[in-house]
Design a protein around this nucleic acid. Sequence first.
RNA 1: GCGCCUGUAGCUCAGUAGGAUAGAGCAACGGCCUUCUAAGCCGUGUGCCAGGGGUUCGAAUCCCUUCAGGCGCGCCA
Length: 558
Amino acid sequence: MKYTLIEIKKNLIKAIEESVGKAIASGAFSADSLPEIIIEVPREKAFGDFSTNIAMQLPKLTKKSPKFLAEEIIKNFDMTGTLVEKIEIAGPGFINFTLESDWIYGVLKDIDRLKESYGRTEAGKGKTVNVEFISANPTGPMHMGNARGGAIGDGMASILDWAGYEVTREFYINDAGNQIAKFGQSLEARYLQINGMDVQFPEDGYKGEDITVHMEEFTKIHGDKYVEMESSARKQAFIEYALEKNLTKIKEDLGGYGITYDVWFNESSLYESGEVIKTIDELTQRGHTYEKDGAIWFKATDFGLEKDDVLIRNNEIPTYFAADIAYHVNKLRTRKFDWSINVWGADHHGHVARMKAALEAMGLSGDRLDVIIMQLVRLTRKGETARMSKRQGNMVTLSDLIEEVGTDAARFFFNLRSPESHFDFDLDLAVEESNENPVFYVQYAHARISSILRQIEDDLTKVKLDYTLLKAKEERELMEILAIFPDEITGAAAKMDPSRITRYAMDVAANFHSFYNACRVKSEDIELMKARLELVKGVKLVLKNITEILGINAPERM
RNA sequence: GCGCCUGUAGCUCAGUAGGAUAGAGCAACGGCCUUCUAAGCCGUGUGCCAGGGGUUCGAAUCCCUUCAGGCGCGCCA
């Protein structure tokens, strides 16, 4: 085989472009602009190895029929250097290309040459992207929603990295504002109760067990001397103590979940630096605010939204929205990220349009912000639905989840479905750790290959490597699935959906298991053994790359 | 009431920048281990793509409308 797969595709696209150009030059048809040439792998084998729908894209521009266009393109097609053996027009105007059968071995050449970086693409070359995810309130432990957001966000960040972007993973710590005040009140009430005072717990306070535990431990250290202290100083002390504890715990849990951040960004720093006020001032200068009922409002209605939003309350405290605008200006203008991606729960979707509007109002394109809205996780246990609001207490935390099902299963599970699908996490089922769990299927493929590699001790360095010995149907299909890995990366990045990679992983594993049952690697025929060895090494490498992206382990043994 | 998400096989879901005969897994039934890990493989079938209308060479995919479920519509975050 002369070419790697990447070269083959590049050559084919170029040849199609040239043939379209020549057809136009010959006067067969004319077009002001040309759509991008897209080649895809047809669903059916009978339709060849690659196809393009270019002849069906051109009728609108040329006023000619797809059939006519396809014929003209084929007439002008130069096969030199493309490995194309046969071209056919099929269906409504597809042009199908059949290549010399050797072409598929190009993928093994690619893998051999690129090794650990096989699958990386340059789609996002030179662009920086900030992926912000989880950003759990530090007022308590992380819940199932955070767990899903973590799996999606970290997976997304890895995919973008593989797609060539320069990626920063970021956690926004909401350590300012209203919920921190409530956090303080809740801590204070528990402390006083623990130390024998009969006080009312705040109506909308945090009722979780963790609040009580914090104050019990605090009491163990400091005793009851805070009972006499002035309330605001006391609350401040409690907040500092508990926040520190919670953040430590969050970082620990995330470490166990396989997530590491590049940046931990404090909301409070936006107040300290004056960025919140400066942002509101700039909005005012640009004419996008007004005063009403003692509050400062953002004129979201100027940007086609239904209603305006408050930036500064009539008690002079800025809203979360105001801080979030400052935060995104910080990302896009101060820190100059080309692109900002946030992973938010569906309960925040109403926030998306006004954030984009606010960015426009600040003179920044709203297109530079994308929000992956994930539907909320519904947790079921023995058929019952459990709610997961922090203020209700009684919730399943991320660390509970990891303890029950393990990191691998959790992260794989959360990326099994696309973010926008409503997802029922059935704890009873996930706990089973049986073959029900698809993560084992993928890991098992990796372990099986590792086992084969351990058992082949022959020195094959002197044996001739001849990929063309790989002729079986299962071998060919396995190479074909490996060949689309870079496309899967590009696709997952474009669609902003990590679950595509999870499904691809299962496809690769399925093709490998079929191969495994049909073909033996260990063989008397050492040339065949060498070729198959290269093939399974390629599969192992792709599986390893995928599991890294998804943040799960690729075990050598199971 | 308004907005967003979802509705595809018995169940859980892919497929939605319009494309070729709508696909997987689970569940059900029947096969495959003296040979590299049976957590595996092979085979058997299933659809008013929620309903209705429209756009066009072509619609699960786009538009309108109805229905069902979830979420949101706060000087909460």
